[in-house]
Amino acid sequence: MSLIVKTITRFTVGLVLVYGIFITLQGHVSPGGGFAGGIIITLAFIQLMLAFGQDEVLRKLNQEKGLLLAGIGAILFLVIASRIFLKPQQHSFVAEKHFQLLSAGFLSLSEIAIALMVAAGLFVIFLTLVLLIEEEEKEKK
């Protein structure tokens, strides 16, 4: 891509990433949540890949690493969900103080786990499809 796209991407990728994390963490106070935040984080990586090419991104996060992250997210969510068998009545581990970042306890933790899984998983799907199309084009040549 051209210099303009690369420069603007350098400015905006961080913003998009931070916005995704914000959506994820604020899911229990304002609209948002793990699924939406995870998709926004994926979009940041996709923008990086569109602007700088796949080699830059593959050096940071390849398919195996992404799949590992998605698996960690899924298992984390399963563990958080199965806490109900241990202490059925405990919903939160911090003192009750509504409308704050750390007010919902396990809800935020499961949001983070979902966001990790969705972001890594969707990015791995994107990577796989891109690499697949490239391979097919190589075979045609």
């Binding site: 609209p31 919903h91 939160s92 509504h98 409308f99 306890g105």
Partner: peptide, 15 residues
Amino acid sequence: EKTGSPNLVTAVALN
């Protein structure tokens, strides 16, 4: 009171 989450959508969906 039960979930500590002011956003009821999240409260219902995740709790």
